[in-house]
Amino acid sequence: MSGFARILRKIAEDRVALIGLVLIVLLVLVALFAPLLATHPEDVWEIHPELRLLPPSAEHLFGTDRMGGDIYSRILFGARLTIVIGVVAVGASLLIGVPIGLLAAFYANWFGDLLMRISDVFLAVPQVILAIAIAQTLGPSLPNVILALSLTYWPWFTRLVYAETKRLQNEVFIEATEALGASPWRLIVLHILPNISSAIIVRISLGMGFTILTAAALGFLGLGAQPPVPEWGRMVAESREFLPMAWWYALAPGLAIFLVVMGFNLLGDGLRDVLDPRLRKSPGRRAAAAVRRGS
């Protein structure tokens, strides 16, 4: 597919986006090969009280935690959870948000207004607070965190799809295709969705970063996965009381969260530069990109 190759080449040219892409590929590889890469895979479940809070060493690369678990191995398995949280939550938001946005844009009457006001209600409450409320009500568990994130992130897709569809509906080729006699269904699936796909892809990448960060925050507050599940936010939370004596305990999961979120955000920004023709044309943006690339 030449379009895909072109996008990859453009991203490779943009050093910052490339860093993001590399970080995410690393995350996926780590999650896939966690059992092979981990030095103590059994430590995800087992406890070794005699090994607790050991500093980093050749045996325990990132040290050990309060249960004597190898932090390095636990981080690797945590990557799987992170991917599942991000993919499922963003995927569900996408499935809820995109059709609602399309419907609202196509039915420019009370029905479309109603849909948009409902999405406004969700946007009016800060997402973390809403997610806390939902996760708290349903009880702390990983599926409930994913559910809470899906229920709070979809309005971003709705708003985006609504705005992009409205913009497209003013384009001559959409009106012309309608004048030609194409059905609304055909218009949406074959003309509108392909033309807004790049904006959606950018939003997916940014949404992954945001969702993973929020999931970590919920984990930190004790609303997510319960011990001994190696969820990164939860690991940071556990490390709090040991911070004065075990600096490595918070460092590894904190750094992991930071790198993954940064990776998705950098990739999202890079994709926006590559995919969005309107921004591609803006000279200021291009100059900024040129400065970033050092050319």
Binding site: E171, V172, F173, E175, A176, T177, P194, N195
Partner: peptide
């Protein structure tokens, strides 16, 4: 502009 009636993709 009948040209603008073509889907760019």
């Amino acid at each position: 502009d009948p040209g603008a009636s073509l889907d760019p993709r």
